[in-house]
């Protein structure tokens, strides 16, 4: 690979190689201050499908230690997104040390709230907003549960703001924290945002999960309790490696479900959602 960039996110080290300089320059700028790694956990490769595609209509293939057989190439202008997707792919296919939950997380007072749910439920946006309002953002996409201790490890990658969510942050946070606006991606318009300094400074500190929420956007405000069975099954669906971890994964998930209070919350707008989160957080800490 012609160009290389290394970084550590939470407890996971990455080496990213690229045929082009540009995507790595963008990564380096946005991930400035993230620790290096000497022996990375995963390698990501961004490469041209054919040698001439480095220059002519350049398109980026995503590869690495773990690959999908029929991944489609992306425009070089979306190279930053390709790198992020490459890291996601390694985590989704190769992570075997932590139980990986497709969930966002934020910390306050040494304890964490976890938010999970279907795509579009708003977990990413809510965690990013919490991160700007006195909480420490632990991650907007993946949460890592330590199977031995039950603690939650942060994975504060760039926040991937999509479509309407972008406007919630533009003008509110330091412009230097934003990547370029990427339009016409498979998920619409995307803009990456660097977590704030507090999230980066404390990313190596795991904490106890204290509240688990299943948010749902587009409904009247409501809070529902959930049965342990439903919570368990939905978390197995939200995990990419639950089956692969075998008994250790089962034990970690069972203990999470048994010990962490859980609520489903419906919300019509983000301000209501944030109020509900704060309210449930206060109640759960009583």
């Amino acid at each position: 690979m012609r160009h290389e960039f290394r970084l550590t996110v939470g407890p996971v080290g990455f080496r990213i190689g690229s045929d082009w300089r540009e995507p790595l320059d963008r990564l380096a700028a946005l991930y400035d201050g993230y620790p290096e790694t000497a022996l990375p956990d995963f390698t990501v490769r961004l490469f041209a499908q054919r040698p001439w595609r480095r220059f002519i209509r350049p398109s980026v293939m995503i590869g690495g230690d773990y690959m999908l057989p029929d991944a489609a190439p992306m425009a070089l202008a979306h190279g930053l997104l390709a790198a992020e997707m490459g890291m996601n792919l390694q985590m989704a296919l190769g992570q075997r040390r932590y139980l990986l939950l497709h969930a966002s997380a934020a910390e306050k007072g040494g304890k964490a709230v976890l938010m999970t749910g279907a795509s579009g439920a708003g977990k990413s946006t809510l965690s990013a907003l919490l991160g700007e309002r006195g909480w420490r953002l632990m991650g907007d996409e993946f949460a890592l549960v330590d199977c031995e201790t039950g603690l939650l490890h942060a994975f504060p990658r760039l926040v991937s703001l999509k479509n309407e969510a972008i406007a919630l942050f533009e003008g509110q946070v330091d412009a230097r924290r934003f990547g370029p606006k990427l339009s016409d991606t498979p998920k619409g318009t995307i803009r990456h945002m660097r977590p704030n300094d507090e999230a980066v400074a404390h990313m190596a500190e795991p904490v106890k999960p204290a509240l688990l929420l299943f948010p749902r956007f587009g409904h009247e405000a409501a809070v529902r309790p959930m049965g342990a069975g439903e919570v368990f099954v939905r978390l197995t669906q939200a995990s990419t490696n639950y089956v692969a971890l075998g008994e250790a994964g089962f034990d970690a998930l069972s203990s999470l479900v048994k010990t962490v209070p859980t609520r489903a919350i419906d919300y019509p707008d983000t301000e209501t959602a944030l109020r509900l989160v704060e309210q449930l957080w206060t109640e759960s800490s009583l």
Partner: peptide, 18 residues
Amino acid sequence: LPAAAVRLMADARRSAEH
């Protein structure tokens, strides 16, 4: 082995066991 290598090799054994 170096600590990072120990962790990676343990991951690989976990994966093989699965």
